[in-house]
Design a binder for these strands. Structure first.
Lengths: 203, 203
DNA sequence: GTCTATATCGTGATAGAC
DNA sequence: GTCTATCACGATATAGAC
């Protein structure tokens, strides 16, 4: 009979995640979260004390997911060129499947001037990545040009994330429907790695 | 004695632009706009009837500025390679000088599902650009590989805009201060056009 | 743990005097 | 055009019964 067996706390959290991601902190009302979860309004505060605390727990989780996925890919033990292809491919899939995450993280990060993710060790995780070491080593061996690894990482993220964040504009200008947009992103899986490799090999 | 001679309507509008861009619609309170403008709260509604209407007029202006700058650059009559360098250079300067514009446009666009800019003729302006024609012609002449112009335009915008939108994260991870971040963006003025040209010439 | 009822406050908007 | 005072409403949060 379709009885929802998840416990109340879980239901609230999942509903909150859905609504916060779609609308951001300010626009979201806790009544909406309660409705979405199918629970009484008062229970939200009973379990999470306040809207802000509920938000923070969701933000922390989401940011960890966002960064964790990237760190995972950066640390794979694969030769450089194959790896660039893989990172773009996999991160595109991740972002297309979770298109609201980047905007959520960035807009709320700006509202709080990045106070949130300073607590997590985002810096170390990216600075000590295998990918970084590979870029430096290959440059040393002259198989690619010398390059700031940070520039390469930012370039990959830009090319994967921005089109999804700007999807309303991109889809409107390109006259894309759902399928058209997906095809556009699929094409980028080829273009972006080729472009980066062409740059690294030239010069 | 530093008397502010701008008329009240202008003062309100400029204050509103500043606050809306920094905080977005929901987070902004009209009392804050009035304070920022140094005028009485009631005058905001006297001149603009409602918060929403004030916001819309600012959004429309800002979007036009954002898109207009890009269209201007896309339509310059310059040979393709020089042009790509120029577009990246000039658009980077524009975005660095106006770093809040992209996030403002995108976050509010998503909140309204792009309803705003469907009214402006953004599609036509980009679809019929000189840049688009150039890419198709050069591909025809085999001086570059065949490419979807939309992909090139989105790639340029991604590489210029995203690092600025993600500045809190980028600066934190790269340990950049104000100067360091500017230098990072200056480097991209070289990297991004080289990368795109390397791609277009290869293949 | 879950509900109803309510306290308290912040916000957008306007009425009406000057 | 500009001000003060205030209304009307929605939102967060909690008290207290069950």
């Amino acid at each position: 009979m379709n009885v929802d067996v998840r416990d109340t706390e879980t239901k609230i959290k999942e509903a909150a995640r859905k609504v916060f991601l779609a609308q951001g902190y300010e626009r979201t009302k806790i009544r909406q979260i309660a409705d979405e979860a199918g629970v009484n309004l008062a229970l939200v505060n009973y379990y999470f004390r306040s809207k802000e605390q509920l938000f923070k727990s969701i933000y922390a989780e989401t940011f960890a997911q966002f960064l964790g996925q990237m760190v995972l890919l950066l640390n794979e033990e694969t030769p450089l060129e194959v790896k660039i292809w893989r990172i773009v491919d996999r991160y595109t899939d991740f972002i297309v499947a979770n298109p609201l995450i980047p905007g959520f993280i960035l807009s709320e990060a700006q509202a709080n001037d990045g106070a949130f993710f300073k607590e997590m060790n985002a810096r170390g995780k990216l600075k000590e990545s295998v990918f970084r070491r590979q870029l430096l080593e290959e440059a040393e061996k002259k198989t690619i040009r010398p390059v700031d690894p940070m520039q390469v990482i930012v370039t990959i993220m830009s090319n994967v994330i921005f089109p999804v964040m700007a999807r309303p504009i991109v889809s409107y200008i390109g006259s894309f429907d759902e399928t058209g947009f997906r095809a556009f992103m699929e094409s980028r899986k080829q273009i972006v790695p080729e472009m980066i490799m062409a740059y690294l090999r030239a010069g």
